[in-house]
Amino acid sequence: MAIGDFIRNSQVWKSIFRHPAPRDRRNRVVVMLTNVFLHLHPVSVRKSGIALSYTWCMGGITFFLFLVETVTGVLLMFYYRPTLEHAYNDILSLRDVLTLGILREMHRWGAHAMVITIWLHMYRVFLTGSYKPPREFNWGVGVILLVLTLLLSFTGYLLPWDQLAIWAITVGSNMARATPLLGYEGPGAKFLQIGGVELIHSGSDARFLLLGGRFVGETALLRFYVLHCVAIPLAVALLIAVHFWRVRKDGGISGAL
């Protein structure tokens, strides 16, 4: 115990933890206020609000899976190069060469699970009417987070650059060329012309913007990689911050009044 006391009384320990261990009521309150991560929470909550049969824990698990995806994703970026020459072979080596290689598995299964848990989270929020005033706006933020999660999963689907990837993305991105007005096979696009020159063609429509080309090729791989690893995660992180902050500001976890 002497060593334990020595550590807890040291200047280093005290500089990190500004108060004694959270064993009594006062310090259990203080710990929530002095730690930036714990401070996402309120100090106290309604008991019914945190019952597992009420929340299903799905929002929290979705956030946790986002963290898992971030960590495994950063590690995967050490091994993966988004070019036609390397992409597929890098994935092969992740499977065959890397010791204890379950990184890609954790990333892929975690992503699938995240899509399911975000749906179940919204399902619960709907069925308990928790989107009702004063939480209307935060529900909207959540819907955008849902869309971004699906886009994250969709952009990541292309990266292994195998048959599964390229054709799933081809099926998905083919929809973009049917966008009304903005896709070259979409309704109304033909009417967008100046002096007989069509503005929307296969080299200028919504699909071209998404893929950076007329088919799923190297430019698409690079675009999806940047969207997947940088652009969308940043947007998600920003919106998660808003989402959590609004949970607190809108009165915490919902409950019967």
Partner: peptide, 27 residues
Amino acid sequence: PLEKLEDDKVLVWPDLVYTELLAMVIC
């Protein structure tokens, strides 16, 4: 409704943070 019955407040440490830790370990 049932949710109204347990209306008293509990401290987040330990009641919620431990649940969260457990959920993370299980996941």
